[in-house]
C-alpha cells in the first residue's frame, strides 16, 4: 500500500535556512547542510528545498550549493525557487535534484510544464501553487507571495495537471508559519479537482493537523516546516500519530526519541 508522506520543507535564503509567517517576517533557523544531514540520517520520506528569494530577485538557481546538499541526501529531493527554463532544470537534475518545483514562471509561461514533462517525465515536475484567501475567495500569488496573479487555484491546478505536472504542492500563504492548521477547505477543493497527488502545505502546528489534511481533505502528502523547526515534534512522531489514526505511513528503520527535534541540532 502506498504510504502518506511527511515532508519537511526547507526554505533557503542567502546562505541559511529561514522560516517566516505568511511568507514574511523571516526568522533564521540555521545552516542548510546540517539540516539535510539530520533529516537524511532519520530517513525522512522526502525533502523539499526552496530558494525563497531567487524568483523575487531574478536569480538563477544555485546548483553549486545544491551539489553539496545532494551529496548528503539519499531520500528524494525536490528543489524549487527561481526556475525559469529547461536548461536550469537540466542543471538542477544533474546537481542532484530528483524533482523540480515550478511556480512563478508558470503564470507567464505555462508551456514550461508541458516541455519539462515531455523531456524529463511527469514524475519530475512539481507544480507549486501559493494561495491567498480573500474572505471566501481564493487567489494564486507568485514571486514568493508578493504578486497577485488573479488566478483561481482550482482552475489553475487543473490546467497544470492537464499540462503534465506530476504533483501539486499547495501552500496556504495565510496559514504559513501560523501553526494553526492547514486550510482544509482549499486542500479539499484542489484534491477533488485533480487526479494527481496533492501535497498539503502551510499551517501544520500539531500532528492532528496532518491527520486532518489527509483524512478530511484528501492530501497524498503533508509538508511542514515550523512544527519541525520550532517545536519538539518530529517527522517520525508525526508518522506514529498518523499510523495510530489509521493512515498508512512508512515505518522508518530509524527509531527516534521524542526529544530529538531538529531544532536541537540546528541551534
Amino acid at each position: 500500500m502506498l504510504k502518506v508522506r511527511v515532508i519537511p520543507t526547507l526554505l533557503w535564503k542567502d546562505f541559511g535556512l529561514v522560516k517566516g509567517v505568511g511568507f514574511d517576517s523571516w526568522r533564521r533557523v540555521g545552516p542548510v547542510l546540517p539540516a539535510i544531514k539530520v533529516y537524511n540520517s532519520r530517513e525522512v520520506d522526502e525533502l523539499i528545498l526552496v530558494d525563497i528569494i531567487a524568483s523575487r530577485e531574478g536569480n538563477n538557481p544555485d546548483h553549486d550549493s545544491l551539489n553539496d546538499f545532494a551529496d548528503e541526501c539519499f531520500v528524494p529531493l525536490t528543489v524549487g525557487g527561481g526556475i525559469t527554463d529547461l536548461k536550469q532544470i537540466v542543471f538542477l537534475l544533474h546537481a542532484g535534484a530528483d524533482k523540480v518545483s515550478l511556480n512563478s514562471v508558470l503564470f507567464d509561461n505555462p508551456n514550461l510544464v508541458n516541455d519539462a514533462a515531455y523531456q524529463f517525465g511527469v514524475q519530475c515536475i512539481v507544480a507549486s501553487i501559493d494561495v491567498h484567501r480573500f474572505e471566501d475567495r481564493f487567489t494564486c500569488l507568485s514571486h514568493s507571495g508578493t504578486r497577485n496573479s488573479q488566478y483561481e487555484p482550482v482552475v489553475w491546478a487543473r490546467e497544470l495537471a492537464d499540462r503534465g505536472a506530476g504533483e501539486i504542492l499547495l501552500t496556504s500563504v495565510d496559514r504559513d508559519g501560523t501553526m494553526q492548521g492547514y486550510d482544509l477547505e482549499l486542500i479539499e477543493k484542489v484534491t477533488s479537482a485533480v487526479k494527481i497527488p496533492v501535497i498539503a502545505s502551510g499551517g501544520a502546528g500539531n500532528y492532528q493537523h496532518m491527520i486532518d489534511a489527509v483524512k478530511q481533505a484528501g492530501a497524498s502528502a503533508v509538508a511542514a516546516a515550523s512544527i519541525f523547526h520550532f517545536t519538539e515534534q518530529t517527522p517520525s512522531g508525526a508518522k506514529a500519530a498518523m499510523k495510530a489514526a489509521g493512515i498508512p505511513v512508512r515505518q522508518s528503520l530509524y527509531s527516534s526519541s521524542p526529544s530529538d527535534g531538529i531544532q536541537i541540532i540546528l541551534n
Binding site: R5, V122, G166, I196, P197, S220
Partner: peptide, 11 residues
C-alpha cells in the same frame, strides 16, 4: 484507478 503518477513509498 488511483491517482497517477504512483509516487511515494510503497512496500
Amino acid at each position: 484507478c488511483f491517482r497517477l503518477p504512483h509516487v511515494g513509498w510503497n512496500d
